[in-house]
Design a protein around this nucleic acid. Structure first.
Lengths: 222, 222
DNA sequence: TCGGTTGCATTGACGGACAATCAGTCAACG
DNA sequence: CGTTGACTGATTGTCCGTCAATGCAACCGA
C-alpha cells in the first residue's frame, strides 16, 4: 500500500497510518469521543486490519486514542485532572531543559530557528500548524539537553498536549503564540537559569488556564 | 493459547509473552546480544507470529530488545553512555518523588511494606528476585506522588534499569540491598526533603558505579 | 419496572501466503 | 589485492480469510 509514498525516508504502513490519523484528530476531522472500528479504518485507508491494529496501539500509547480491550477505541478526551497532571509533568521535564538551555549558548541558534518557524506563520495558518510549531519549540529546548530518555519522556506528552489545544483555536492566534515564544527565547538568551524556568512556569500556567477554561466552556453542551 | 491461564486478571497473549520473555532476559536465560527470530519464538511459545511481533514491539519499547527494521531483534546490551543517561533520568524523576515522599507521612507505611519485601528475601533468593524487589521500592516511591505521567515515565525506565543489573549478581546480595533501602526509608521518614533527595543521589551514584564497573570487567572477554 | 437471556457486532488470535528487504557469498573487475 | 556488483537464502512487513471470545444492547418474561 502507498498512502503517501515518500521517496526519501521510508515509512512503514503503520507509521503512515499513525501520522494520518494523528493529523485527522488534531485538525478536528475526528472529534473527541468519536468511536472508531478497525474494519472501517482498514477500508478507509485501504490497509489490512493488522496494520490498523498496530497503528491504534501506537496512537493509544501516545494518548490520542482511548483503547478499551475487547470493546473498542475512541478519540481521547482529556478531563481536567488529566490536564493538570499533564502540565505538571511538562513543567518538571521542561524546567530541567530550560535551565540547561540558558547556560548553553551553542544551542541558542537552533532555538532561534524554532521561534522563526512560528513567526513565519501568517494569520491564515491553520490552528494545527500553530500548535505544531509551538510544540516544536519546546521539543527543541528539551532535545538540547542531549538526553535520549528525557527527550522520549517529553515526546510521550506530545499527543496529549496537542490534543489539549485542539479546541482552543478561538482563544489565540499565531501572532500571540509567536510573541510568547520569542519572549521565552530572550529569557533563555539572558543566561539566567532561574529566570528561564520561572518564565516557563508562567508560560505553562497560562496555557493550562486557557485549555481548562475552553474545556469548561465547551463541556456545557457536549 | 494458554501459557499461564490465570483465572483472575485476564492477560492477553501479548502481555503473557512480554512477561515470559522479560523474565527470561532478566534471569539470564536469554543473554545480551542474543538474536531472536519471530518464527522461532512463535514456535517456542506456541503462538502466532502476529502475537510475537506485538510482544517484540512492546519489549523493544521497554528497552529490553533492540529492534532493527527489516533485519531482526537482539537482546539489548546497554553501553556506558546509555547507562549514564539512564541513571541521570532516574535521578531527575525519583528526586521529585523522594522530596514528595518525605513530606507525606500517609504513604510511609506503603514504603515500609516494600522494604520488608526486600528484607524477607533469604540469601538463597535469585538475583532477579532481588532486583525486582529493589525496583519495586523505587516504583512505590514514585507512585506515591500520584501523577500517572510521572509513574509512566518512570515505568519506561524499568526494563533498562533491570537490564543494567543483570550481570551484577556477584557484586551484591539481598542483605546489602535490604540494608541500603532500609536506610533510604529512614531518611524519608525523617521528613527532610533535601536529605531524602541527597540520599537518593548517593544511592543511585553507587548503583551506577557498580553497574559500570561490572560492565567494564565483563566486556574484557565477550 | 426490572432482571435475566439472547443475538449481533466487534475484537483477539490464528494460519497461510507473498513481496520487500537485508546479510553474506562469490565472482568479475580495476 | 582490494573493491565493486550481482546472486542467494533467510527474515521481516503486510496481506487475506477464518474462528472463537467478548461486550453491548435489544428483547423478553415476570
Amino acid at each position: 500500500m502507498r498512502l503517501e509514498a515518500q521517496p526519501r525516508g521510508r515509512v512503514s504502513t503503520t507509521e503512515a497510518l499513525v501520522l494520518t490519523i494523528k493529523a485527522q484528530i488534531l485538525q478536528g476531522t475526528l472529534p473527541a469521543r468519536t468511536r472508531l472500528t478497525e474494519l472501517d479504518l482498514a477500508e478507509t485507508h485501504g490497509v489490512s486490519r493488522q496494520s490498523i491494529r498496530q497503528a491504534i496501539a501506537e496512537l493509544s500509547r501516545r494518548g490520542l486514542l482511548d483503547l478499551r480491550p475487547h470493546t473498542g477505541v475512541w478519540v481521547r478526551d482529556l478531563d481536567a485532572h488529566e490536564i493538570e497532571d499533564l502540565y505538571w509533568m511538562r513543567s518538571l521535564l521542561e524546567s530541567e531543559a530550560f535551565a540547561y538551555a540558558a547556560l548553553e549558548p551553542t544551542i541558542w541558534t537552533r532555538l532561534e530557528r524554532s521561534v522563526e518557524q512560528i513567526e513565519r506563520l501568517g494569520p491564515d495558518a491553520s490552528w494545527s500548524e500553530v500548535i505544531d510549531a509551538d510544540w516544536a519549540f519546546h521539543r527543541e529546548v528539551v532535545a538540547s539537553v542531549g538526553s535520549d530518555r528525557l527527550r522520549i519522556a517529553h515526546e510521550m506528552l506530545e499527543g496529549e498536549t496537542l490534543l489539549s489545544f485542539v479546541r482552543c483555536t478561538a482563544d489565540e492566534d499565531a501572532a500571540t503564540v509567536a510573541k510568547d515564544h520569542r519572549a521565552l527565547l530572550e529569557v533563555i538568551r539572558a543566561g539566567d537559569s532561574t529566570a528561564a524556568t520561572d518564565a516557563l512556569q508562567r508560560h505553562l500556567e497560562l496555557s493550562k488556564q486557557m485549555v481548562l477554561r475552553r474545556r469548561r466552556n465547551d463541556s456545557v453542551a457536549p
